[in-house]
Design a protein around this nucleic acid. Sequence first.
DNA 1: CCCCGGGTTACGGTTTCCCGTAAGAAAGGC
DNA 2: GCCTTTCTTACGGGAAACCGTAACCCGGGG
Lengths: 222, 222
Amino acid sequence: MMFERVLIAEDHESSNISVRKTLEDLGIEIAHYVFYCDDALTWIQKARQNDEPYDLLITDLSFEEDHNKQRITGGTELIKAVRQAQPNLKILVFSAENKAAVIDALYDELGINAYVRKARNDAQELKLAINTIYKSNKYISANLRQGIKAKNAYEFADVDIAIISLLSQGIPQKNIPFHLQQKGISPSGLSSVEKRLNLMREALEFSKNEQLVVYCKDFGLI
Amino acid sequence: MMFERVLIAEDHESSNISVRKTLEDLGIEIAHYVFYCDDALTWIQKARQNDEPYDLLITDLSFEEDHNKQRITGGTELIKAVRQAQPNLKILVFSAENKAAVIDALYDELGINAYVRKARNDAQELKLAINTIYKSNKYISANLRQGIKAKNAYEFADVDIAIISLLSQGIPQKNIPFHLQQKGISPSGLSSVEKRLNLMREALEFSKNEQLVVYCKDFGLI
DNA sequence: CCCCGGGTTACGGTTTCCCGTAAGAAAGGC
DNA sequence: GCCTTTCTTACGGGAAACCGTAACCCGGGG
């Protein structure tokens, strides 16, 4: 009636503790925890080999570097690796990340089963999400639904974020065509660059490129 | 031999749980907790009136808005209010904030007793910090010391961040003198604006203002 | 085949920004 | 008082960015 074998990948000790406590409250007996992504993958593989595979992985997104160098450096890559190692494992992401672009990508491209944001009632929501995906496969937070819809401001194309990224790195506008060509991105003409910048500024009611870069920074697009 | 009455102000349920557990481990019996800043101040005042004042406040910095509108909206303002209500109360900030500029200001301007960053071994560090400030008044994380030193890149003056802030809001460079005068900031001449921007770019080895705004964004200066 | 339309690029004029120089103003020493 | 030093401001040439227009390329329909 509930997940039996759960693995927690979370580098923050405090978060790790409260997730464990939450699982305890749910009556889940086997809840292992690791602080590093590499360990997570290892444990999952080993459990499979021993015919005791995990049911559920709860993972954070951002893992901080330290002396203990890792092959897998973040939750996103961990999920990719896990999807290969054990495709049927359900994945719940528990992170403070609040950028619609990032969360959308998790659902759409990596096919995670649930995303719970570290926020006001996160422990309660964690329980709800776990219960939900145990039977129905997907959980999408009510909070999140509106956030995802709120991104109708402007649909950034690949070339757009490439341009803004180059700008934010100090590349002069007139040199951007050259860099775009090198990356095989088109259109790459200087006029096109100017036109797209103009378009973005107009759509977002900005007047200067400085505003564009901070905007994209805020939304995690660069 | 240890704090007797502790108040926790932390809106994230999960963090709240693990802080409580940590205090439990330390043998602190009276650990109240609130999820809103206004409640924190109320409880502190009430406890004082009842001659049972708190010894220690553990608070987060960022509190998220919700339907429950608050007078005090964040940890910084809470600390200011608390310092007035009960100057001798020791304050430990427990937050994910990692910007040297912000943390420095907490120690220097608000006189907090300890800052523990939500990070890999945060629960352990929390215990250490609590023990330390119980006897010695100030705790500064070893991790942090180096971070604070690492900010020797460029010392931003008030006028610098004002200029960059205006730029990031889309104010054309040539209009910045006008806005600076309105705020009573000097120097305000256009040449001075240009000169300061040039100075900053040179010091940080940037070539464009776009880089400056993302840099300041990253370090929480704007 | 030609024509057409969307998307891309090239070209000019105008504005803004960049940067060096020099004039002006304020603070401190003699 | 005067002079020096430092900070601030004013000016002007040159580069970059901005913006409108027009030419170009390229696939689809007639």
